[in-house]
């Protein structure tokens, strides 16, 4: 049985100063692109998920803010009849750790692009990708890799085949492990096994530049996913010419992390040698309709706690602060 002791990150002098500096730099970056700061309360009194840190305030069960996007979405849906189009945030979230080394308190900075239903989404997705592309340079990371994915590449074929529940979860778990043989095992005997296994093989092709999109042509769902492929192709053509010198752009067709939440393009930022992604985000068009608002949205979150850890353990990955 795993032993878990809570990890509470106390920051001493240089790390505390670095956190403050990075928060300031990123919030200025967002403000320069028209993103206005919101700060949802640290204490939540609404529906309290299991992963949150919960306690009783008298007879009321309350929780600490566990996710900025969720906290902001609730606040925005309650407060505004029309969505503010660009929102940014900075602060801490508190979650029960899944892995023993994860901290309970995590520092994040992020932004959300919110649009009324029907407004074209691709431009907003590219806007967010461009903003994220600037983040490594702003934080002094010597080199980084930006992965572009799309949750719909897995979600739509599964839905088209009527695969839901445990079986769909098994397929997604196998894809998350990048294990095509596990996909075949999970689907053994299912009428769509051959098609979905071939699709998994296509998605798990070696990650590379724009050529990776060609792998989709070999999928049995190539026609179904034409729109997604065109969207990713357009995004690549917009982003590649303005790629900063120390950033590599890769297409990751098998990105299934957060598949229950994301509905379209996804973004993940890595540094060479980092054990965890340093920023992540994507399009999540089902959250606001679920809260009674016909809005669509996308955003990303920079995980400052992970960056602080990385700066502590691998200072060679960062430029000397000016």
């Amino acid at each position: 049985m795993a032993v878990r002791t809570p990890h509470f990150p106390d920051l001493f002098f240089s790390a505390a100063a670095r956190l403050r500096r990075w928060e300031g730099i990123l919030m200025e970056h967002f403000a320069a692109h028209g993103y206005r700061e919101m700060h949802p309360s640290l204490v939540l009194r609404e529906a309290v998920p299991e992963g949150a840190l919960r306690f009783f305030d008298g007879e009321d069960l309350v929780a600490l803010r566990w996710d900025f996007t969720m906290a902001l979405a609730g606040l925005l849906a309650r407060t505004f009849p029309a969505p503010p189009d660009r929102v940014a945030y900075a602060g801490a979230v508190f979650r029960r750790p899944v892995q023993p080394w994860e901290a309970v308190e995590r520092f994040e900075v992020g932004c959300e692009r919110i649009q009324p239903e029907g407004e074209p989404a691709p431009e907003a997705d590219v806007e967010l990708a461009r903003m994220l592309m600037a983040v490594p340079g702003l934080l002094g990371l010597k080199s980084a890799i930006l992965h572009l994915g799309n949750a719909a590449l897995v979600r739509r074929p599964l839905e088209a085949e009527g695969l839901f529940g445990e079986l769909a979860d098994s397929v997604v778990a196998a894809l998350s492990r990048r294990a095509p043989h596990r996909v075949r095992e999970a689907l053994d005997g299912h009428p769509a096994a051959t098609r979905l296994s071939a699709h998994a093989e296509a998605l798990l092709s070696v990650m590379d530049g724009p050529g990776t999109l060609d792998a989709l042509a070999t999928s049995p769902y190539a026609t179904l996913l034409e729109e997604e492929r065109a969207h990713m192709d357009r995004a690549l053509r917009s982003l590649l010419p303005i790629l900063p010198p120390n950033l590599e752009l890769r297409v990751d067709l098998a990105d299934v992390a957060g598949l229950g939440f994301y509905t379209g393009p996804t973004l993940r930022l890595w540094a060479p040698g980092a054990q965890q992604e340093l920023a992540a985000g994507g399009r999540y068009d089902r959250l606001f309709p679920g809260l009674g608002r016909p809005w669509q949205a996308a955003g990303f979150c920079v995980r400052l706690s992970r960056l602080l850890d990385l700066a502590g353990t691998r200072p060679d990955l960062f430029e000397e602060p000016r």
Binding site: I145, H147, R178, A179, V206, M207, R250, D252, R268, W270, A271, P272, G273, A274, Q275, Q276, E277
Partner: peptide
């Protein structure tokens, strides 16, 4: 027997690991 990889290393240094 299965070949396994660290998620972070494989995704952040594909040129080295693959």
């Amino acid at each position: 027997a299965r070949l396994v990889a660290a998620r972070g290393a494989y995704l952040s240094e594909p040129g080295r690991l693959q």
